[in-house]
Computed example of a mutant assay.
Amino acid sequence: MAQIRSKKDAELFLERFEELSAWDETGGKRYFVFADRERGGIWTLMRYEDGAFTVHGKGETYCDEGETPLSAQEAIAFVWKHRSAVNRAAGEAA
């Protein structure tokens, strides 16, 4: 997958989420993990079989309470905001 350099690229990343994400059999979802550079931990972006996206963050000093649901537009904005860390993780996964 090409680097995310525009919001359209962020949208394409989400459309092709299965190509770079792992499968969680127990949770029935795909997931992609990348650095949370703001808080010094990791983000996990998840997509369920019905297409719904959620996000969860955790680190040594914090753990979000549960998953936060994201609309399609919120998911695009989230990937765009964190594109540098997403690009790095996607490059390592390729």
Score class of each variant (00 low, 15 high):
residue 72 A to L: 14
residue 66 G to R: 01
residue 5 R to N: 15
residue 52 A to Q: 14
residue 78 F to P: 00
residue 48 Y to M: 07
residue 88 R to L: 15
residue 7 K to H: 05
residue 29 K to V: 02
residue 29 K to Y: 07
residue 81 K to I: 05
residue 27 G to C: 00
residue 30 R to E: 13
residue 12 L to T: 09
residue 57 G to S: 08
residue 27 G to K: 02
residue 41 G to Y: 04
residue 46 M to Q: 06
residue 61 T to A: 06
residue 77 A to S: 14
residue 1 M to G: 11
residue 91 G to M: 09
residue 6 S to M: 09
residue 3 Q to H: 08
residue 24 D to W: 01
residue 59 G to W: 01
residue 33 V to Q: 05
residue 89 A to M: 08
residue 19 E to S: 12
residue 61 T to I: 05
residue 75 A to T: 01
residue 37 R to C: 05
residue 58 K to P: 00
residue 91 G to E: 05
residue 85 A to N: 07
residue 76 I to C: 06
residue 4 I to A: 08
residue 82 H to G: 03
residue 26 T to D: 10
residue 71 S to A: 12
residue 70 L to P: 04
residue 10 A to C: 03
residue 57 G to E: 06
residue 40 G to Q: 09
residue 21 S to G: 11
residue 88 R to M: 10
residue 37 R to A: 05
residue 34 F to G: 08
residue 75 A to C: 03
residue 3 Q to I: 14
residue 53 F to N: 04
residue 18 E to K: 15
residue 7 K to R: 15
residue 50 D to F: 01
residue 84 S to L: 12
residue 24 D to S: 11
residue 70 L to D: 03
residue 90 A to L: 09
residue 43 W to K: 03
residue 64 D to W: 10
residue 13 F to K: 11
residue 46 M to F: 00
residue 22 A to E: 13
residue 80 W to T: 10
residue 38 E to Q: 11
residue 58 K to V: 03
residue 37 R to F: 02
residue 38 E to V: 11
residue 12 L to A: 12
residue 30 R to C: 05
residue 16 R to T: 15
residue 39 R to N: 13
residue 15 E to V: 05
residue 88 R to S: 15
residue 53 F to Y: 07
residue 53 F to H: 02
residue 8 K to A: 15
residue 60 E to R: 12
residue 3 Q to A: 14
residue 81 K to P: 02
residue 74 E to W: 03
residue 15 E to K: 10
residue 73 Q to T: 15
residue 86 V to P: 03
residue 4 I to R: 08
residue 63 C to T: 07
residue 46 M to D: 08
residue 54 T to G: 00
residue 93 A to K: 13
residue 22 A to C: 07
residue 44 T to W: 00
residue 32 F to C: 05
residue 90 A to T: 09
residue 37 R to L: 12
residue 10 A to T: 01
residue 56 H to F: 07
residue 9 D to L: 14
residue 63 C to M: 12
residue 32 F to L: 03
residue 23 W to Q: 04
residue 83 R to S: 07
residue 89 A to T: 09
residue 15 E to A: 15
residue 5 R to W: 01
residue 74 E to R: 14
residue 93 A to G: 11
residue 5 R to D: 14
residue 11 E to D: 10
residue 10 A to P: 01
residue 77 A to F: 01
residue 46 M to N: 13
residue 52 A to C: 10
residue 27 G to W: 00
residue 27 G to D: 02
residue 44 T to S: 10
residue 64 D to E: 13
residue 64 D to A: 06
residue 72 A to G: 07
residue 17 F to G: 09
residue 30 R to W: 08
residue 20 L to T: 13
residue 79 V to L: 06
residue 91 G to L: 11
residue 18 E to P: 14
residue 8 K to C: 10
residue 58 K to Y: 04
residue 18 E to R: 14
residue 81 K to W: 03
residue 71 S to E: 10
residue 55 V to F: 00
residue 73 Q to E: 15
residue 55 V to I: 09
residue 53 F to V: 04
residue 8 K to F: 12
residue 92 E to C: 14
residue 89 A to Q: 08
